[in-house]
Structure formats: structure tokens, C-alpha cells
Design a protein around this nucleic acid. Structure first.
Length: 298
DNA sequence: GTTGAGCGTT
């Protein structure tokens, strides 16, 4: 190890910033990400070959090439600049990412009052975001509303928000769903949070944060206390979280399993049907908690 | 002229 700080920049021609190394000469990815949010690694131009080279990254720790950071300027890697990274996760995940593309679709609006018009619908939903179209389905002969309709938004974020809640329209509670799906206000808006199963007790929040940073920006890490062999990691981008679901990852030599973090009101009694002391105490214990479980455990 | 879980005439 040659010096206490190494120089890191967003781009080869940008002004570098000095990042502190650890005592053992390594650099924590979290140190880089503190200055460059969302960073997932480093690269540098090899003086001999003039090619860009990646810096070795093991579980959130960056290792100096040939044990010497030298006097080079290192360049930050970001997940979105690197499609190859996503492809490596696996083919199924890549499909998920593509399918989860931020394109809006029609939403069915269930439970409309008979009197609600398309103009009423448009006026209501415009308060959430720009509306592309609204429909109220009617009996062709009578012109009476069938009590449901459709809406489409410009922004995917608006769609997500609208699906996630119930709607009071002209005095009735209505639900907006993706057509032909059961997903409603309760259920799975695609989560930015993943469930990390098979954790060991020596895994810290910092270590988990450093590890998962390589996939995308991490906004939260939660480890239930006392130890319960799982954790939750939240990403800034739901697509990153979804892409990891189903994966087995190696953290500190341990194979952990990634699945979707489900909303916390999933029936806990299905998880532990024979809990000692009866289901009431179990329910009380969990209803007060923040814990969430993946559907694969239910 | 009624109704209240569902799934879209053109």
C-alpha cells in the first residue's frame, strides 16, 4: 500500500476526488459510494495495455491491482452503464427486468358508482398525474354504466401509486388493478425491498450494504433483532430488487437466498401453524413487528 | 326504473 488516499473520478477527464483506504490497503465500495452514490465498482486504464481494467471487488471490498493503487486515477462504475453485469445474474432475471420495463398499461377501475362519467374519472385521476385515456363501460342499449372502467397514465410512477391505494370516487371505494390480475392495493406493487434468507449472525448491516451495492444503490438494510437468520435490503430501483429475486448469492462464504419481501400482513399462522402458546400470542408478537416474509415461505 | 363481483361492442 502506497498512500492513504486514492484518486477517483466519474470519468477519465473529470476532476478526481480522493477516497480514503482502509488500514489493510483495501478500499470499501461504501467509501466510494459515499462520494459517488450508486457506484458499484472501479476501473482504471492499464498503463501498459492502454485498456480499461476492472478493480477486484469481493463482498464490498475493493482490492488494489497487484497490491498497489499506484498513482492512477480510478473511474467509477455504475450498474446502469453495465448491461453485462445484469446478463451475468441470469437469463431469467434479465427477462424479469425487461418485462418490468417502465411502460404503462391500462388499469381496470372496479366499483364505480353508476352515475360516474368519464369526465368525472378524468378529473379524479388527473390529481395523481397526466392521464392518457379513461373509459366507463356501459350497456350499449341503455347507456347505463356497468360500474367499471379503464384508465391509463403517462407515467409509470403514477400507475404504481394509483394501484397501491384505494380510491373514493363519487362516494364509493374503488380499486384499480392490472386487468386480469388479483394484485390490488394490498398486494405486490413491485417491491424495492428483498428478503435475504439464510443469513448468519455475524453478518452486519454494513457488510450487507457493501455487498449489495454492487447491484445498485442501496437505500436501507434491516436486520431483525434478536437474530432470526434473515434480513431486508431495499434498493433505490425496484428493477434491481426484482432482478435479484430467486438468486442464491454467496456472502462471507454463506449461500443466502433472495426472494421478494411481501407486505407484512401475510398470514403468519400459515408460517408457524403449531406455534407453542397458541396462535394468539404469535399474532400479537408479529402484528407489532415490522417484519415481512417472502411468499415462498407462506 | 332494479345491481355491486368482475375484466374491455365499435
Amino acid at each position: 500500500m502506497s498512500e492513504l488516499y486514492i484518486r477517483v473520478a466519474e470519468d477519465e477527464n473529470e476532476e478526481p476526488m480522493e477516497i480514503p483506504s482502509e488500514d489493510d490497503g483495501t478500499i470499501l465500495l461504501s467509501s466510494v459510494a459515499a462520494q459517488f452514490p450508486g457506484a458499484c465498482g472501479l476501473r482504471y486504464r492499464n498503463p501498459e495495455s492502454q485498456c480499461m481494467r476492472g478493480v477486484r471487488l469481493v463482498e464490498g471490498v475493493l482490492h488494489a491491482p497487484e497490491n498497489d493503487w499506484g498513482n492512477l486515477v480510478y473511474v467509477v462504475n455504475y450498474p446502469k452503464d453495465n448491461k453485462r453485469k445484469m446478463d451475468e445474474i441470469d437469463a431469467a432475471s434479465a427477462v424479469k427486468v425487461k418485462r418490468g420495463f417502465q411502460k404503462t398499461s391500462d388499469l381496470i377501475v372496479l366499483g364505480l358508482p353508476w352515475k360516474t362519467s368519464e369526465q368525472d374519472l378524468k378529473d379524479y385521476f388527473t390529481t395523481f398525474g397526466e392521464v392518457i385515456m379513461v373509459q366507463v363501460k356501459r350497456d350499449l342499449k341503455t347507456g347505463n354504466s356497468k360500474g367499471f372502467g379503464f384508465v391509463r397514465f403517462t407515467e409509470y410512477e403514477t400507475q404504481t401509486k394509483v394501484i397501491a391505494q384505494r380510491h373514493m370516487i363519487d362516494g364509493r371505494w374503488c380499486d384499480c388493478k392490472l386487468p386480469n390480475s388479483k394484485a390490488g392495493p394490498d398486494e405486490p406493487m413491485r417491491s424495492r425491498k428483498i428478503f435475504v434468507g439464510r443469513c448468519t449472525e455475524d453478518m452486519t448491516t454494513d457488510e450487507l450494504r457493501q455487498y449489495f451495492m454492487q447491484y445498485g444503490e442501496v437505500t436501507d438494510v434491516f436486520i431483525p433483532k434478536p437474530f432470526r437468520a434473515f434480513a431486508f435490503v431495499t434498493f433505490a430501483d425496484d428493477q434491481v430488487a426484482q432482478a435479484l429475486c430467486g438468486e442464491d448469492l454467496i456472502i462471507k462464504g454463506i449461500s443466502v437466498h433472495i426472494s421478494n419481501a411481501e407486505p407484512k400482513h401475510n398470514n403468519i399462522h400459515q408460517l408457524f401453524p403449531n406455534f407453542p402458546g397458541g396462535s394468539a400470542s404469535l399474532a400479537a408478537m408479529f402484528d407489532r413487528s415490522q417484519y415481512q416474509f417472502p411468499s415462498s415461505h407462506v
